[in-house]
Amino acid sequence: MTEALVQLEGVGVRFGRITVLRDVDLRVAAGEGVGIVGPNGSGKSTLLRVLATLLQPTDGHGTVLGAPLGKDTPPAVRRRISLIGHQPALYGELTLEENLGFVARLLGRSHDDVVKTLSKVGLGGALDRRADHSSHGMQRRVEFARVLMTRPDLLLLDEAHAGLDRHAAALVEATVATVKRRGGSVILVSHEPDRMLPLVERIYEIVDGTTVEGVPEP
């Protein structure tokens, strides 16, 4: 059996009296893409934050990239995880180049890498543009440039296609393919299953806070 990069058993998340997730079981193998679907408010983004080790589950247990879920996830494990969420993780006052440069320097990468990676995602002509003066699609492209730079073993995408044009959507597909080809896993969350189907091998649906495995339609 292929090595599991993500393994959750009976995971639950409660915020006070509100139960968002319960008895979630999930197994994602190396090189596999998994889709998670469900209506708005069903707990998809919460599940992604658990998988990103940013939120500690209140019930159950599991491992992400070999590290048990909990408070003390080693930074070395977190550096192998990339999350693209609803809100862009960019500094509005900085240019697109400075935003990626900040990440690059922390990873010990060169300025040339920044320029090359931004060109790769189609932003070669917008290096000096401030992030808060850039479109949603451009901001998303910077986030995908960050993924290419950090080379994650686990890529988590929350509504990755939202607001993207055809070219940017192709970038999502190319990035997912790159991560999987390198033996990493990709978990995509969406309320539009049609766009994620070509990228995943399996789909889970969140029903009443728990996961139900389904089969992707051709």
Binding site: A52, L54, P75, A76, R78, R79, I81, S82, L83, G85, Q87, P88, A89, L90, Y91, V103, L106, L107, T150
Partner: peptide, 15 residues
């Protein structure tokens, strides 16, 4: 700081 920015620092392994 936004939540996304704080989470980015966490995932970059910043102490």
């Amino acid at each position: 700081d936004t939540q996304a920015q704080r989470e980015l620092l966490t995932l970059l392994g910043i102490d």
